[in-house]
Design a protein around this nucleic acid. Structure first.
Lengths: 209, 209
DNA sequence: CTTTTATACTGCCAACGGCAGTATGTCAAC
DNA sequence: GTTGACATACTGCCGTTGGCAGTATAAAAG
């Protein structure tokens, strides 16, 4: 009975309050998605696994003739969560289809590249908008649903905001850069010089500490 | 016979030159991993799928008594790749276990939080170092193995460098921020004020265009 | 009182990750 | 000239995940 990181992310939510599977699925999509994106479908399986592991208990009530199961964390669950917080996380990993389109843009034409960049920009703005909405919620009622958690939420939000702003700014820069291109296959001499300068900058990592 | 984004990333590599499965697996880990991370194991299946789809051909040679299969893109493959470059990419998605540890740090203790942040920082520096090595290769021999592709490589590298530098700088900021904390559960008044200021900043997205 | 929308899931299957295993090639040391 | 270490070059297996489709009831809107 091995639990995945997804299991622990659900267990983490259960450490804050009781939830139904449906609420957990909603909450994962609304907030945790930004750092741990998982299909809604999978979230429904996790509480069952947690119960099987002894980390949660379920209470089945009813709304009309429909069953409603509410899950709660157990002391063993809290202990397991505490232990997990001391384990080493996997490195962050980024899936970026839009960048694949850019990397191999020389196999397509200039219009396609520019549409891809516009899509990346629009998607960054969209995600940024979702974060702004979450933030508004946190500002109102002085800290949102979990006002005792403002400090950790702020740590995380600071990163996510910059992350999505960075995507947008990069897309804008790339659009400006490619505005001077005549085709996707042959860089102009100026573009070539700027490219080599990017490589030289990148080859020299900043001081670590 | 539906091809995945992983299939198209392999097809993209084949558009540059011929490769063996092993070389493709290496190249994916070395470079494309940063934008499309996939297990080495899976890369071995992709060329076969591309052959089945008519997008690649295979030629089996030999090194001693060991078979060596080299894959090449077909005209149909080039056409399919061109069409794919015009499709809409999925939004970028980030998996960040370290941030999960930070978000639920109030369920653990201060030492665990600081170790998590140090790990995030070290992993960012490590990834940045891999990018610096790639860049050195691109600077030498005036553009690396594919000098005609400097312009698209520069576009992508610019983003990736900033992405990993951002992770490092954020981890350093978070370490400084948490240096003032007495525990993980109760923010000081000052920390609480700074948190609410983060939310207010975040609630106000910058001008889109 | 009927249609729409939200709630609350489950089944199915292809894609994926990670580990273990197999087998050959290359080079350096003994 | 053989042994061992390491690199090359994959394949099998199995549990996890993503995404689509489907089922069914409750609540809200018209």
């Amino acid at each position: 009975m091995n639990l995945s990181t997804t299991s622990y992310s659900v267990l983490s939510l259960l450490s804050l309050r009781d939830w139904t599977s449906y609420e957990l699925a909603q909450q994962m999509q609304r907030t945790l998605r930004f750092v741990w994106p998982r299909a809604e479908r999978k979230i429904y399986d996790e509480p069952k696994r947690l119960v099987a592991a002894g980390y949660a208990t379920s209470v089945t009530g009813a709304v009309g003739r429909r069953a409603r199961t509410t899950y709660s964390i157990t002391p063993a669950g809290r202990a397991a969560l505490h232990a997990w917080l001391g384990t080493t996380p996997q490195p962050a990993s980024l899936e970026f289809e839009g960048m694949l389109r850019v990397l191999f843009a020389d196999q397509g034409d200039l219009d396609q590249l520019r549409v891809s960049l516009e899509t990346v920009k629009a998607q960054a703005i969209e995600a940024r908008q979702r974060l702004a909405e979450l933030s508004e919620e946190l500002v109102s009622n002085d800290g949102g649903a979990f006002p005792e958690r403002v400090h950790v939420n702020a740590l995380s939000l600071r990163f996510l905001i910059d992350h999505h702003d960075h995507q947008r700014r990069w897309a804008e820069w790339a659009l400006a850069e490619t505005a001077k291109w005549k085709n996707t296959t042959t860089p102009t001499d100026a573009a070539r010089r700027r490219a080599l300068q990017v490589f030289r900058d990148a080859a020299d990592p900043p001081e670590g500490r």
